[in-house]
Design a protein around this nucleic acid. Structure first.
Lengths: 147, 147
DNA sequence: GGATTTCATTGGGATGTCCAACGATTACCG
DNA sequence: CGGTAATCGTTGGACATCCCAATGAAATCC
């Protein structure tokens, strides 16, 4: 008498595209995190520093909105980045509630290094694919992301 | 006098495949999580329940190894699932250190519902793509995952 | 049969995410 | 105007996740 066939639920879950893309994303994340750690930054710090660099003098509330990050967590990240000399908080003369956050030259330098490192990590991530396939993948992911 | 051109670091980061795949993964994860929440389960609970279903009566240490989950956290997840009546912990007569974890009929039923819901969520995730494109995406992601 | 390993559980620390509240400042509007 | 509402940066705390360590009970190794 054979036992009732169990429901292969884990196999089923792990065959779903959402699971697959999650695994690949985790791999890519860990590669980039390891690369960026060479410059002493973690991924959230890098994201904040990059946003500050891109949006010039910017209020913290703007960073919260642009990065969809929690305001409390941003304070800690900015404290760390500021004490590392990568950015500066200055009072905004036009609105004294706001802090004008600006990247320092050292911050820009770190950012450029991290950009190279992150690109190299992405090279590793995509190394199983040739150029055509990489283009396909990026195109498909872009469509999933934009819509 | 134009200000020095800022380094568009955020734009650069967000153009990397690792960032793109991370966003798509986050979207898929939230879709599946929302779907599965209809059955009162969170994703870690579902993963554990599915593994228990798949591997029949299984010791907790085996689940720890198969799911790469922390043993401490597994205890909490099993407590929740057991008090919800979805699985049962029984002493293993052949090794009295072990707990034989087994899915209940109610657990199997919940699992089947979750499988449907997760499939529908994946349908939503992939809705911008046609069948050919979905196959391409899965094939590309599979190669990135397997190597 | 004594030393080592495995098992389930508990505890604690470090981190990431989210929500609520606060004092200070600005914007709105009657 | 003037008072209410909204926004700003900050702090506190609730949770979940992840890592390491230790426990008593039970099995395995030699």
């Amino acid at each position: 008498m054979t036992p009732p066939e169990p429901f292969r639920a884990l196999e089923h879950i792990q065959s779903l595209p959402s699971w697959l893309v999650g695994r690949v994303a985790a791999h890519g994340r860990s590669l980039v995190a390891a690369a960026v750690a060479e410059e002493g930054l973690k991924l959230p710090h890098l994201a904040v520093l990059a946003a500050v660099s891109e949006y010039g003098p910017v209020a913290q509330a703007d960073l919260v909105r642009r990065l969809s990050i929690d305001a409390k967590d941003l304070v800690g990240l900015l404290n760390h980045l500021e004490s590392a000399g990568l950015l500066v908080r200055a009072p905004d003369p036009r609105d004294r509630r706001k802090n004008a956050v600006t990247v320092t030259p050292q911050g820009t330098h770190t950012l450029r290094r991290c950009a190279e490192l992150a690109e190299r990590a992405n090279e590793d991530l995509l190394s199983p694919l040739d150029d055509t396939e990489r283009g396909q993948l990026i195109a498909l992911l872009t469509r999933l992301h934009q819509t």
